[in-house]
Simulated assay, not measured.
Amino acid sequence: MSSILIIEDDNSIGDMMSIYLMEDGYTVKRASDGQSGLRLFKEFEPDLIVLDIMLPDSDGMKLCADIRSLSSLPILMVSAKNDVSDRVKALLIGADDYLCKPFSMRELSARIQALLRRSQIVKAKSAPVTREAPPSIHVDTDKRCLYVNHTPVETTFSEFELIKLLWLHEGKVFSREELLNRIRGIDSFVTERAIDVHIANLRKKIEVDPKDPKYIKTVWGVGYKFVLAAE
């Protein structure tokens, strides 16, 4: 569950927020002044901060700006000040939301959930995209075996003949008719349509994504080719 830091000098409000949010399942830490709040922020590394504007030792607005310069975590400011100018200033210096006192605990919880949800979406979009490494493909013509990542992969007789031909002539484009002639007589039921079926089955066995093949490429209007170094 997410962790929340509350920086609030009013003990009754601070205790009420802490208890309510803990009951909601959050891990909660609380500070009653700006200095201890900044210390807890660095030690605790919360997922969200609830920050009061009026603090005994510092200006909540400045503290918000200081925290924002160090982190992009969501900041929800709370205050008895409900002037539009105060709300606008808080948002401009880096707050993500502003809640005027008095407020209900249900509304506080709902706003926190919304901010955390938005934060997770942003993190997901900014996270680096990891791609699965392409497999290593090898054809042992003597043993009549296809290896994917050094692991033998079972093939039919016709499938092996096709992958062997393509693998031995990397980059060469073969028409369906040429591939058909290669295995004609081995597979008495082979047709040009059967070639497509064999190719589809081979892709399932060697490609990371058979629908986006990197090794057995379709050359539209002609046939197929094999690219050993996946493009």
Rank of each mutant, 00 (worst) to 15 (best):
I199V: 09
G185F: 07
A194Y: 00
D187W: 05
R182E: 09
K211P: 10
K211S: 14
P210G: 00
E207T: 11
V190T: 15
R182L: 06
E192S: 03
V219H: 01
K205W: 07
K217S: 04
L202V: 04
P210E: 06
P210A: 03
I183N: 11
Y215G: 00
T191F: 06
K217W: 09
K205M: 09
I186C: 07
N201T: 10
R182W: 00
R203T: 01
V219T: 06
E207Y: 06
D187E: 13
I206S: 00
N201F: 05
R193M: 12
N201G: 04
P213G: 04
V190W: 09
K211W: 10
G185D: 02
D196I: 07
S188P: 13
E207W: 08
P213S: 14
V219R: 01
V219E: 04
V208D: 11
E192L: 03
I216T: 10
A200M: 05
Y215R: 15
V208E: 07
I186P: 00
R182P: 02
T218D: 14
D187Q: 13
I186G: 10
T218K: 15
K204E: 14
T191L: 11
I216N: 02
I216S: 01
R193D: 12
K211E: 10
K214P: 02
I216P: 00
L202I: 03
D209A: 11
K211G: 06
V208P: 00
R184H: 09
I206K: 03
K217A: 12
I216E: 08
T191P: 04
R203L: 06
D187C: 13
D209T: 11
I199S: 02
K214A: 12
V190Y: 07
A200T: 01
D196E: 15
I206H: 06
D212Q: 14
E192P: 01
D209F: 07
A194R: 04
D187A: 06
K214W: 05
D196P: 10
R193Y: 12
I183M: 14
T191W: 05
V197I: 12
P210V: 02
I195R: 01
V208R: 06
K204P: 12
K217T: 09
N201D: 09
V208W: 13
T218Y: 15
I195V: 03
K217P: 00
D187M: 12
E192V: 02
K205E: 06
E192K: 01
S188T: 08
K214I: 10
I195T: 02
R184E: 14
D209Y: 13
